Computed example of a mutant assay.
Amino acid sequence: MLDTKINLLVIDDDDINIFIIKKIVEKTGYAINMVSKNNGQQAIDYLNDVISANQPLPHLILIDINMPVMNGWEFVEAYQALGIEQRVDLYILSSSVYENDIEKTKSYSTVKGFISKPLSIERLKELIKELEY
C-alpha cells in the first residue's frame, strides 16, 4: 500500500524535460514528492543517502538513457547491485527510437517498461495506479 505521498525520482540531464515532468506531476492531482537528478551517478548517490538515512525509497523511477557520467543502462546495473528488495517501479523514459533500446529494456528484471518521451499526464496516472497494486 502506498503512503499518502508518492515518491518519484526522475533521472534526466535535460532541464526542459525535468520542467515538463514537474508540470505534468502538478496536473495529476496526486500528492507527489518529485526529486530529479541529472545523471545516473547522482541518482545512485541519492539512493545510497536515502538508504543510509532510513528514508522512504522512491515508489517510481523514470530513467533517461543518454546522459553524461552514468547513462541509464549503467544506472540500472548499479541500481541492481544495491540489492533493494522493496518494490520500486523503474521505467526507461527516452526519446530513443531504436528498437534495440526498447528490447534491451526487457532484459532487465528490475525495469518494468519503456516509455517514449514526452511523458503524458494520462501515462503518469497509469503508472501511479499500477503502484497501488
Results as ranks from 00 to 15, higher is better:
K37E: 10
N7T: 08
N100K: 12
L57G: 01
S95V: 14
K106G: 05
D3G: 12
V111N: 03
I102A: 06
L62K: 01
T110K: 11
M70R: 09
I24M: 09
N7H: 11
K129P: 03
D15K: 10
L57H: 02
E130Y: 11
P118G: 07
G40P: 00
Y46G: 04
Q86V: 12
I24Y: 02
A81I: 04
Q80V: 09
M67G: 02
D3Q: 14
Y30F: 15
T4N: 15
K117C: 05
T110Q: 12
L93N: 01
E85A: 14
I16R: 07
I16M: 12
M1S: 15
I102T: 03
L124T: 01
I16A: 12
D64S: 09
W73D: 06
G72Y: 00
Q41D: 06
D45Y: 11
D12N: 13
V69E: 11
V97S: 11
I51N: 03
F75R: 00
I115E: 04
S107W: 10
N48Q: 15
D13F: 06
K117I: 09
S109F: 10
K129D: 15
T28M: 10
A43W: 00
Y46S: 06
I18C: 09
M70H: 06
L90H: 02
I84S: 14
L127F: 08
